[in-house]
Amino acid sequence: MRIDIITVLPELLKSPFEASIMKRAIEKGIVEVYFHNLRDYTTDKRRTIDDYQFGGGAGMVMMIEPIDKCISKLKLERDYDDIIYMTPDGETLNQKMANTVSLQKNIIILCGHYKGVDQRVRDHFITREVSIGDYVLSGGEIGAIVFCDAIIRLIPGVLSDETSALTDSFQDNLLSPPIYTRPANYNGWEVPDVLLSGHFANIEKWREEKAYEHTLNRRPDLLDES
């Protein structure tokens, strides 16, 4: 997968891709990530990427011309499966979306700022709008990091155990069941006997029951979607 991220703050984005699972994916050659500074596509000495709203109102708006130039240049070089805009009013990121996008080959992610982008960008360039929650951040970069982490970890070869992602919370619309590790008894707090039994059918049944119970208690809305 190739990910091209359009941003006004490339320095904010780089660090997370130089550590942990995303770094491993890049080093293995499974994922390529490129950062494009939107100010490099401006024409004035001040490298302006925003302007006042038509009709008045508080807050600046990202201009269409630099975004057009950047996206158009990238599209001349390859085809893209999605051009994604990180915005609070987009579709809320969930596991189903992450699964879908993780199968794609090339994507562009545009990080919004200020009051957002000129509506014509959304009308003519963007194919998918994504939000990481019902709140507003200073810019789309942090959302882009979250989005990238969610999709990259699903790509085959990224995780050491590829089956691990299949048992994560939200796969099959269930939260994960409780998990335990050594020691089996700590200060009198014991691991459930079934997990120590070696009876894999019973263990799997216990996990399914606990996952359902956990979801029912914490996120019953997920069961409504099943």
Rank of each mutant, 00 (worst) to 15 (best):
M1F: 06
R2E: 14
I5K: 00
I5R: 01
E11H: 13
E11G: 14
L12S: 14
S15Q: 08
S15K: 00
P16D: 10
F17K: 00
F17T: 00
R24Q: 02
A25C: 01
G29W: 11
I30K: 04
L38Q: 06
L38V: 14
R39S: 07
D40P: 10
I49G: 05
Y52H: 12
Q53K: 15
G57K: 04
A58R: 06
K69P: 04
C70S: 13
E77A: 07
D79F: 01
I83H: 05
D89W: 15
E91C: 10
K96T: 15
M97L: 15
S102W: 13
K105G: 12
K105T: 15
K105H: 14
I109Q: 02
I109L: 12
I109F: 03
C111V: 12
H113F: 11
V121M: 07
R122K: 01
T127R: 10
R128V: 08
S131I: 04
G133F: 08
V136E: 10
S138P: 13
G139M: 02
G140C: 13
G143E: 05
G143K: 00
A150M: 11
I152M: 05
R153G: 05
L154Y: 11
V158N: 00
S164R: 00
L166W: 12
L166Q: 12
L166F: 07
T167N: 15
S169E: 12
Q171R: 05
N173G: 04
I179G: 10
R182S: 01
A184E: 13
Y186V: 02
G188K: 03
H199Y: 09
N202M: 03
I203N: 09
A211P: 02
H214F: 03
H214T: 13
H214Q: 13
T215G: 00
N217H: 12
N217R: 09
R219I: 11
D221I: 04
D224Q: 05
